[in-house]
Structures are given as C-alpha cells and as structure tokens.
C-alpha cells in the first residue's frame, strides 16, 4: 500500500497567531511548527505501514523552502520519502488552488491512500482533503477519529455534531483525520540523523504541469476583503442558582454540543 500524508507548516500554536492586515493573510513571520494534527496523521500512517507489510509512507507538503523542516520531521518519525511543492508562483494559493497542485503531484505517482489532518490550525478551511479527493476522482472519508485498512477496504468512525457514524469505502481514497486519531511518537535521534539521507522530491510549477496563471495569490478564486481582530472576551453568561442551575448548565453545554 502506498500511503501519502499531507503535512502543513503552521504558525506555532503556542505562540501569538495573527493575520497580517496588509496582506490579509496569516502572518507566518513567527516560529512555525508542523501542524499537530498532521503529526498525528503521520503517526497513523506509520501504524498502518507497520500492520501492512510492504507499505510505504510519503510525506507531502506545499510551502516555502523552510517547510522542508516539516517534511524532515515526518521523515524522522519514520516516513520513507517526501515530496515538497515549492514555487514562488504557489505562494498565497487558496484551498482550491492548493488542492489542484497537490492533485497534480499525487495523481501521476499513484497513491492508494492519502491521509490529511481534517483542518489546519491556521487557514481552518477543512476543505483541501475533500477537494483533493474530487480532483483525484477517488472516494473520501473525512473527519475520522479512527482509521482501519483491511484488504482494499478503508473504514473508520466519522465524527459528527451528534456523535459518530461508521463509514467505509474502497481504496484508493483520501481520508482526513482529527486530533483523536493517535498520539504522535517522538522521533529518535537515529531517526533525525537518518532523515537527512531520505529522498525528498522537489516539484515546482513546471514539474506539476501548472501554469503561472493557475495558482498563487494573484489568481486566487477566493478574495479576503477584510480582517477583524477577534472581539475581546466578554463577561459570559452567569447562572444564578435558583434550584435549576444544574439543568441550566447542562442545557448550555448541550446547546454548545459539548455534552
């Protein structure tokens, strides 16, 4: 089984994250890390690889040169190879364009299973996995909290607002996973050293068969008109106990779909 895992470099979730008012895009000048959910996606891919002899895991990212560090992290964890989509013409691409570039990289290489995080912590469109599946013409299972492969069947529990549903389809497929999927392993120092020697395929627009007018901020299908800072936290709702406080609290949590 050939597995590809999509990983994304995002601003450090522990640091201050902001939108740049001049470009209206995510400010990526601060510290960056591999998106945590993507590390978990790599982990589940490595677990599937261990359970299916002869499988390979390729980590894939689209991002600036320094995003190579995110690929190296995946390689250090145990992935076999990496693909890096890097080109000035890709900068500022929206989800539609990103899915086109990823599809152009993945389609000719023929993957059985593509695993992605269900939503990045920066853009948060949660749209790329579905768009990618459409472009590749394969089935999609999104927002999975468990993932199993048996023969040519891929299955898992898809999280919904009210619980979960069991879903399954046939390979090849694109799946997206949420943060419950697995705990990412820490790479060993041997893994870190070994990652240097693993192959990283670098693809530009030309290699992808895309034209300069297809991608990038200037050709984006979606335009951000305005950005506004999140409003300051307000006082919240105060429940006074008149004997029904517990019910009120439970109703509040249920309305927020927290219980």
């Amino acid at each position: 089984m050939k597995i590809a895992v999509l990983v994304k470099e995002v601003p450090d979730t522990w640091g201050d994250r902001r939108l740049d008012p001049s470009t209206k895009r995510v400010d990526r000048s601060s510290d960056v890390v591999v998106d945590e959910v993507d590390e978990k996606a790599v982990e589940i891919a490595l677990q599937l690889q261990a359970a299916n002899a002869g499988s390979t895991v390729t980590v894939v990212t689209m991002g600036p040169k320094r995003a190579l560090d995110s690929l190296r992290k995946g390689l250090a964890m145990g992935a076999d190879s990496a693909i890096h989509l890097v080109d000035d013409g890709l900068a500022g691409s929206d989800a539609v364009q990103t899915s086109a570039a990823l599809a152009a990289a993945l389609a000719p290489r023929g993957f059985d299973l593509v695993i992605a995080g269900n939503e990045s912590t920066d853009g948060r469109t949660a749209a790329v996995p579905a768009m990618l599946a459409e472009r590749l013409g394969v089935a999609q299972l999104t927002a999975l909290r468990t993932l199993h492969v048996s023969g040519s069947t891929v299955s898992g529990e898809r999280v919904t607002d009210d619980g979960y549903v069991d879903v399954e389809t046939s390979l090849p497929a694109v799946v997206s996973v949420n943060e419950q999927i697995a705990e990412a392993r820490y790479p060993s120092f041997k893994g870190i050293m070994g990652a240097k020697k693993k192959p990283v395929e670098v693809l530009g627009l030309g290699d992808l068969g895309l034209a300069a007018g297809d991608t990038g901020a200037a050709n984006s299908w979606s335009v951000v008109h305005d950005v506004t800072a999140r409003p300051a936290r307000t006082g919240g709702t105060i429940v006074t106990d008149d004997g029904t406080a517990a019910t009120q609290l439970a109703d509040y949590l249920a309305a927020a779909k927290l219980i």
């Binding site: 190296r72 820490y186 790479p187």
Partner: peptide
C-alpha cells in the same frame, strides 16, 4: 547543525 536543532526541539 539542523539535526542538533531538531533533537533539541524534540
């Protein structure tokens, strides 16, 4: 070197 930085970060 990068490997040391990665080890440190990990």
């Amino acid at each position: 070197p990068t490997e040391y930085l990665q080890l440190q970060a990990m």
